[in-house]
Design a protein around this nucleic acid. Structure first.
Lengths: 284, 284
DNA sequence: TGCGTGATAGAATAAACATTCCAAATTACT
DNA sequence: AGTAATTTGGAATGTTTATTCTATCACGCA
């Protein structure tokens, strides 16, 4: 009985499931013995109801499979399968809403669809940026950050690789690192000397590479070379399937947002800055 | 809100699913075409993988059911059913919004003040970024945006001036503008030729200049020159007392945040991007 | 005690399902 | 260019799974 009240708080999020709970509670007294057993089991073990087969649920609830089906029918469903969908909706609702769902939520708030005025464009990019920052905060682990900082902190010289759309991130990172007194080489490919710029990198140095879809060809080419030369690499990219993942010591994954008008560099910039500033902590 | 954050964190700690993600990423390059498609689908739609039947998943991923099974076997599982258990474990792990998580969430929020761990640094910068994006949205007027876009839209060539800490914003703006097919000159001072780079600017062109405290000396010198030559100027800076204000046609003021550890370029980046994309609207 | 009503267990059945198999197609190799 | 090897699509297969059926059981009532 308590159970029903306490979960009420979340009722709005998974409506159908909560409605089912209420219905089961309401009908409980009218049920036959066996149905009562099943009703209690269902309220206590919603996850089992969602994922188990009829036979499994029956065994756990210590009843016959047919009783489970009768239970579903008693609640007005065509069969167990239909009832199970409701329990599954609870799982789906509880899982961390993906980028897609969050954006969908945002769109409902603002008038995102009609990106007709400059102001709306700004609003859209600002919102996307906010979401991406939130996701960044949640998605980056203390462990990865620590390892990245350790690698860069131990480096004699830090090589920064970020071309094309990622170049602003690279320049910003370079700027901050230099402000903090680090030796930094920005691999900017100036004079088509990208390879030569990276020639002096050794295993005592470190590489931090930034690249997103569609990955810059020069980045794609140079990164494996440096990895092959045993230069420890920290990577900021958009997918574990990125060409920069193989051989990297640490990978920060910043997934792209679906339906984004244009990739926002807000999160990568923020992460880069955090890594750089994080370097100062180890030296206190 | 708490729930979302904590489940994300837990998901990362939750071994089997994350291990599977890593394994899929590791093997991705070795997979055949069809298997690659499925691998990407699996990473993108874990919930579908958890709850769907082979036929459903196959349909959604636009492959044959048999390919799904082959995918599971390629990863070392006996079949799809076994693979699916791993995806289901993610759902199970994400449910259970117990008091445990709330405590974890609260502690993170409490950690906010003392910026001692890399994670706290990230949290701080991300929060600052979020705030600055909100303020940007509120502080920028439709009118200024429209005027800035009109000026840049009418320009034959757009000159972008942003040095020092603002250089990343300048490179990003340049990148986006060029993607959109604009003629852009990035005044980067390469080879100490800043003045020469700007020589060709005329009143038919436009200048967009970005600079923040402490204002870059070269920017401070060059900007008035261009204004004197009647090049219409749009400015992004931090104060109306900035050296870039005099002579500017439009000024976007993005004040520095009090107690900011380091100026975040998040808002300027976002504004720059919005202006650039806003240019496309007038041409529809 | 005997009859009737409804519940139940367990087997029977039918549907859904994952998996396997094989021919065709594509790719790699000689 | 020809052959082997791999990949792929789609139907066939065998298994699992939900559902239905029926005989039996429990219980209330006269």
């Amino acid at each position: 009985m308590n159970r029903i009240q306490t979960t009420r708080v979340e009722a709005r999020q998974h409506e159908p499931y909560e409605a089912l709970r209420a219905e089961i509670a309401r009908q409980h007294s009218r049920f036959s013995d066996r149905l009562k057993v099943i009703a209690e089991f269902a309220l206590d073990h919603p996850t089992d109801m969602a994922l188990g087969t009829v036979a499994e649920v029956a065994q756990r609830a210590k009843v016959q499979p047919s009783a489970i089906v009768r239970f579903a029918r008693a609640l007005g469903y065509a069969g167990f399968t239909e009832l199970q969908q409701v329990f599954r909706s609870r799982l789906v609702a509880s899982v961390a809403p993906s980028y897609k769902e969050r954006i969908a939520g945002l769109r409902r708030d603002g008038d995102f669809r009609n990106t007709k005025t400059p102001r709306a464009v700004l609003a859209r990019f600002a919102s996307e940026g906010t979401v991406s920052l939130e996701m960044l905060q949640e998605g980056v682990s203390e462990k990865d950050l620590g390892r990245a900082i350790a690698i860069l902190g131990a480096a004699h010289t830090i090589y920064v690789l970020g071309l094309g759309g990622s170049f602003p991130v690279a320049t910003h990172l370079t700027y901050v690192l230099r402000k903090l007194g680090r030796r930094v080489v920005l691999l900017d490919g100036l004079g088509s000397a990208l390879g030569e710029q990276a020639n002096s990198a050794t295993p005592q140095d470190a590489l931090i590479a930034i690249s997103f879809k569609s990955y810059n060809p020069d980045t794609k080419r140079l990164f494996p070379e440096l990895v092959a030369r045993k230069v420890p690499a920290v990577v900021i990219t958009d997918s574990l399937l990125s060409p920069l993942v193989e051989g990297a010591k640490v990978v920060f994954e910043i997934p792209d947002m679906p339906e984004a008008a244009l990739r926002t560099m807000v999160a990568p910039m923020c992460l880069a800055q955090s890594i750089a500033v994080g370097l100062t902590l180890t030296h206190d």
